[in-house]
């Protein structure tokens, strides 16, 4: 199977977040593989182990993204491709990123493309289904299980806690939901091997794209932090009294019950 994984380098949102100059401040921040894309990478490796083939991890990013791509290689992916847009594009949105990925993928004869269901920073969940539509292949989002048998594919997907069993066929795009698998940590030999695995870097020009072709359709005009919440009130005294006070506060101060 010829498997491609869409991987985004994301801000670790467990870290403290601050805004400076109208942007999320990046200095000193931790960057990671988007957690849902870790499931995607793991699933791709497992499917390759079961069915043979090759796993290529693709990311639209900048020079820094090499680090996360190397990690994906150390987990067991065979190849990595960095589409470096740093010098070519000022502004992007979901359309732009999806278009770039689609142009890269359109002649790759992918049997299966796996992405994450959402990026924990941008949070739109648009990129992968947009890519599927562009390539005119079917897609299934938020999957928790996938079984491939020849061309036939059986999938279980999570739908707000209900689960749906879906039948479809390759070529196909799916997006990973938590629960799909337990992503492995790169092993030491894996890390050593990753250093020798191919990591290609390409630019928009290599995809015959110009900046205009990927001009975003939406624009962010402001980024801000939620108003600092006033420190909550930790109640004190005997438990009975705390409970009485709480009910009182919910009724008279917060007026929610």
């Amino acid at each position: 199977m010829n498997i491609f994984v869409l991987m985004k380098r994301t801000f670790d949102t467990e870290e403290k977040i601050s805004v400076s100059g109208g942007k999320i401040a990046e200095d000193g921040a931790e960057f990671i593989i988007n957690p849902y894309d870790e499931y995607a990478i793991e699933e791709a490796i497992q499917l390759k182990d079961a069915h043979g083939g090759e796993v290529t991890v693709v990311s639209v990013g900048d020079e820094e993204t090499e680090k996360q791509l190397r990690t994906a290689l150390a987990m067991g992916a065979d190849k990595a491709v960095l589409i470096n847009i740093e010098d070519d594009v000022d502004m992007t949105d979901e359309f732009s990123i999806a278009k770039i990925l689609s142009e890269y993928l359109k002649d790759k004869d992918a049997d299966l493309i796996i992405g994450g269901n959402v990026a924990i920073d941008g949070g739109s969940g648009q990129v992968a289904p947009r890519v599927a539509d562009y390539l005119n292949i079917p897609y299934v989002t938020t999957i928790t299980s996938i079984k491939v048998d020849g061309e036939k594919v059986e999938i279980v997907r999570d739908v707000e806690g209900d689960s749906e069993t879906i039948e479809t066929s390759l070529p196909l795009l799916v997006t990973a939901q938590q629960g799909l698998n337990d992503p492995r940590y790169p092993s030491l030999p894996g890390i050593m091997k990753a250093k020798k695995k191919p990591l290609d870097e390409i630019e928009l020009d290599d995809l015959d794209l110009e900046e205009d072709d990927v001009e975003p359709k939406t624009e962010t005009v402001e980024i801000y932090l939620p108003p600092a919440k006033e420190a909550g009130r930790i109640l004190e005294g005997e438990v009975d009294d705390q409970v009485k006070e709480l009910v009182q506060l919910l009724r008279t101060e917060a007026k929610v019950v």
């Binding site: 949102t13 920073d121 941008g122 949070g123 359709k217 962010t220 402001e222 939620p226």
Partner: peptide
């Protein structure tokens, strides 16, 4: 119209516009 949406797992917000179309 400007649209407000949470980003960074709800730790920040962005205000977006749709440029045209």
């Amino acid at each position: 119209p400007k649209f407000i949406r949470p980003i960074y797992s709800g730790k920040a917000f962005e205000k977006k516009v749709i440029k045209d179309g």
